[in-house]
Amino acid sequence: MRAFQAELSKLFSLPGIWLAVLIGAVAPAVIAALDAIAEKEAIIAGVSTRLPEMGYSGLGLGVQGVIILGVLAVSSEYVAESSETGGGQQMTTSLTAVSSRLHFLLAKAGAVTVISILLSMVAILTTVSATHLILGEYTPAFEGSRLAGAVCYWTFTALLAFGMTLLTRNGIIPLAVLIINSSVVSFSVLLHKVTKLAFYLPDRAGFEMFMFTSGSAHTPGTGSLFESYLTPLTGGLVMFAWVAVLLMLAAIVFRRRDVAA
């Protein structure tokens, strides 16, 4: 518990985390608002097929905040001090303060999980408000179960970023890969044209938790990327499995590794 509090204290005294919080609170609302503006006419005319997605698209594409959170929580430990000040790194201090590496990792992952859950709730608040602001009376009702799915999606995404950075010990690669994948071009979008297995990639499987309405789950058939392929629960379990395997692998590597190596 003390180690967990120390991890929260570490994160909140890092300026980069406040950037992550800001992006997490604002980005999904902006994306949702733009999406709503683009669809507004079709929705009013009653011809939009994307009405059920309104708002959720922002929550699906605006995960950069938690990606930065998960990456920074780990990469900040490995930032080298300048050679003028002796070239140390915080990891030495962290592992002398908490001598069990497993406790250290659990505390850190716990802190990332808690902050991700809170941040995703803030994001839901801003996103729902932004959607209401644009669509007014045409706003679709937001279902609690889908919003809970979005909270899981954000938290799992943060933990994937956390695990990847633990393996690379440097934030640049995971940050670049995950941010590009979430916002510019999704790897699973490209791959789904080749194989159905793309639907089991963590981001696509995670989308099943909240991006699609429950009715479409029973009629998968067309294989379109914009239709449900797995049930929300299966999608969530698939993404969770990715998180669990990655974190276990990262923990094994981390426990064996010399800090100096």
Binding site: L14, E81, T85, G88, Q89, T93, T96
Partner: peptide, 12 residues
């Protein structure tokens, strides 16, 4: 223990 440098993150 005090090893290389300060053992602190530069931005803190």
């Amino acid at each position: 223990a005090a090893l290389d440098g300060s053992g602190a993150h530069p931005m803190r």
